[in-house]
Simulated assay, not measured.
Amino acid sequence: MKDQVLAGLLGLCVGDALGVPVEFRERGYLKQNPIREMIGHGTYDQPAGTWSDDSSLTFCLAESLCKGYDIYDIGYQSVQWYHKGHWTPYGEVFDIGNTTREALDRLCYELIRPDLAGLTGTRSNGNGSLMRILPLAYFLKEATFEEKVPMIAAVSSITHRHIRSIIACVIYVEFACHLLQGFDLEESYRKTQVAVNNYYKDEPELAHFQAILNGNIAEVTEGEIQSSGYVVHTLEASLWCLFNSVNYVEAVLKAVNLGEDTDTTGAVTGGLAGIYYGLSAIPGSWVDVLARKEDIIDLAERLAEKLASA
């Protein structure tokens, strides 16, 4: 279990860090100047190996799960990141989405219940909950689908409470759970399609996920894949990269080189690719330059110990 947890967390963080220097770069630019290695500076002028809010909030969730599932503590950890630099690479936040910012302000200053803090408007469907939800897959790996959904919905709803964001998180966590159980990509995908379609069969919002749930995302052309910060785009792009690659390195580089929201597409792809291909598939040279590498390894060990004891 320890290697599985570490592969997912490091896989996500490396994908994030690869994308940070070129966030907001267009695909055409990256076609001409592709990312092939871990570089620094760029968009935020950060050193190589710097990760963003994607990894920070993922680590906050993992940190909380080391004590068990407590939606209040998950919210608290997230606020500590936003206001006090908890689980940041160098002690300060340099990137935060508008929806996440507003939700965490509500949580902090209005003392609202964490799972009611998230925004519910249709324009509040950025990828800010999808990017941080992966640790929940470890916690819910053996749960039934009906048990998973309310917990995934609550964790997403800390920042993103619209049903579209919640469904995206459900698809992602369910897919990751099947990978953790040892199923291959195709079987994990098929099982996820069946479970989500059956559970949400009367939900109109499911129409936004047709390319994933009623088609084969692997067969979509690159030109049809978008890589903006919209949650559906991020989920589609990440699954597409995973299915159209043969190893971890290819998957995360393909994700980053799609352009636009490069850190999040890299992170969401990297978490799944890390789980599927394993810890040894993540280049050691990329891991070695990560900020706070030893802290991340320690976090993975603590989470694995908690899961084993549970």
Rank of each mutant, 00 (worst) to 15 (best):
F243C: 09
V249W: 04
I225M: 05
A255L: 01
E222N: 03
C241K: 09
L185H: 06
E260N: 11
L235T: 12
Y199S: 08
Y248S: 03
E222P: 01
N214A: 05
E219V: 04
Q210N: 13
A218W: 11
L185F: 11
A195L: 15
E260C: 11
A255Q: 03
V256F: 02
L213W: 11
E203R: 00
G229L: 03
V196N: 02
G229E: 06
T264N: 07
K201Q: 15
S227F: 04
Y189P: 11
I212Q: 05
K201A: 07
G215M: 04
N216V: 04
N257Y: 02
L253Q: 14
D202P: 04
A211T: 14
G182M: 03
V231L: 09
D261S: 11
G229M: 01
T192Y: 00
Y230I: 00
N247I: 14
H233R: 01
V252L: 09
A211D: 12
V252P: 01
L179Y: 06
L179S: 11
L235M: 11
A176P: 08
L180D: 12
E224I: 01
H208C: 04
D261L: 00
Q226L: 15
V170L: 04
T234D: 05
V252T: 02
A255S: 13
L180H: 10
Q193L: 05
V232D: 02
V194S: 04
S228H: 06
E260Q: 14
E205A: 13
L242E: 00
S188G: 15
G215S: 08
N216S: 14
F243R: 04
L239M: 15
S228K: 10
E174Y: 09
V173R: 10
A218C: 11
G259I: 00
Q226R: 15
K191G: 06
Y189Q: 13
L239R: 08
F209Q: 02
L213Q: 04
R190I: 13
E203W: 09
V256W: 01
G182C: 07
L235W: 08
S188R: 04
L258R: 08
G229N: 13
L235S: 12
I212E: 01
L235F: 07
H178Q: 15
V246F: 05
A211Y: 00
E219G: 11
Q181W: 00
Y248V: 05
W240T: 10
E186L: 14
G182H: 01
V256L: 03
A251G: 07
D263I: 06
A207I: 14
A207C: 08
D261M: 00
N197S: 14
V256P: 02
V220M: 14
R190M: 12
N197A: 12
K201H: 15
D261H: 04
L258G: 01
D263P: 03
L253P: 07
L185I: 14
E186H: 09
V194N: 05
V232W: 03
G259A: 02
S238V: 01
V231Y: 07
V194R: 12
S245R: 09
E186Y: 12
K191W: 00
I225H: 12
V246P: 00
E236H: 06
F183H: 14
I225W: 10
V252K: 05
A195N: 08
Y199A: 10
F175W: 12
T221G: 13
T221L: 09
N244A: 04
N257S: 08
